[in-house]
């Protein structure tokens, strides 16, 4: 006897909750697969080259419970958050200003895109010479990585606002500040959040690179110290920590991004 599911009739679409649960299950399977691959790889090349997942977790726990880890994490967090605040604020301001003025946007866009594509790590000697060793150099390094994508995405989002919104703002005699806050920002929000998501990743990257070269404290410093002493277990443990944190935050921003994209848009 055939099971009901085998009957060849169109299956009614499953409710969203069930679909979402199925998708989460699939993602969990992929994660499990990755862990299995990691374990297998560790067996093949040896634990000295690639420590196994369980050993890595144990190592990570040991690192995190050591007394000086809190200080290093705080240092990285402080530098990263400062860099993020500066990159977001300055990037948004540049993007809004350039996006609102057509000619400026045309002038600036290729320059910004060129800045985005150059390997900014090359600039680290200049940053060190200008800011000296310490937290300001790290913050500057994070900012130069994060500011460009935020500005580029904000500019594009503002340029793509439907002209009728701006005409409505003029008809209602809104001041430029009101227009920016009440019309441009909400209308451009989905694009801006995409930019913030990429800006977040790159600022983290920049801050960590800055720490690796220009610092005696922070997670980047721990990483480079472990690299120099060939301490693979620590490298893999710290890398895992960074990956988990970055993936969770990025996932949250992505969910926000998708929700904004789906929200009803009046007049469309």
């Amino acid at each position: 006897m055939r099971a009901a599911a085998d009957v060849d009739v169109p299956v009614p679409a499953s409710p969203p909750a069930v679909r979402r649960a199925g998708r989460l299950g699939d993602s969990a399977l992929v994660l499990l697969g990755l862990l299995a691959l990691w374990q297998f790889g560790s067996w093949v090349v040896g634990a000295a080259v690639l420590p196994a997942p369980a050993a890595t977790l144990a190592k990570l726990w040991a690192i995190m419970s050591s007394s000086d880890f809190g200080g290093h994490a705080w240092e990285t967090g402080r530098a990263f958050l400062s860099a993020l605040a500066i990159a977001f604020a300055a990037g948004l301001a540049i993007g809004l200003l350039l996006g609102a003025h057509r000619l400026s946007a045309e002038v600036a866009e290729p320059i910004l895109v060129a800045l985005y594509a150059i390997p900014k790590i090359t600039l680290y000697p200049i940053i060190l010479l200008l800011f000296g060793l310490g937290i300001s150099a790290k913050i500057a390094f994070g900012v130069i990585h994060g500011i460009v994508p935020v500005a580029v995405f904000t500019m594009a989002a503002v340029r793509n606002i439907r002209p009728v919104y701006l005409r409505a703002a003029r008809a209602m005699r809104l001041t430029p500040v009101q227009t920016a806050g009440r019309i441009m920002l909400p209308a451009a929000l989905p694009g801006i959040v995409s930019g913030l998501r990429i800006g977040f990743s790159l600022t983290l990257l920049g801050t960590l690179i800055g720490e690796m070269f220009a610092s005696q404290r922070g997670i980047g410093y721990l990483l480079v110290k472990a690299m120099e002493t060939n301490d693979v277990a620590t490298v893999v443990a710290l890398a895992t920590l960074l990956i988990v944190v970055a993936t969770i935050v990025s996932g949250a921003l992505l969910a926000l991004n998708r929700r904004l994209d789906r929200s009803p848009k009046p007049g469309r």
Binding site: S27, V30, V49, L50, I198, F200, S201, L202, L204, L205, L208, I209, L223, A226, M227, N230, V232, V235, V236, L238, A239, L242, I243, A246, T247, V249, S250, G251, L254
Partner: peptide, 18 residues
């Protein structure tokens, strides 16, 4: 998909020593 979307949040170069 979620892994692809957050891939660039991961500082890949930390694997360089490995």
């Amino acid at each position: 998909d979620p892994l692809l979307a957050s891939y660039y949040a991961v500082p890949t170069f930390v694997f360089y020593p490995v």
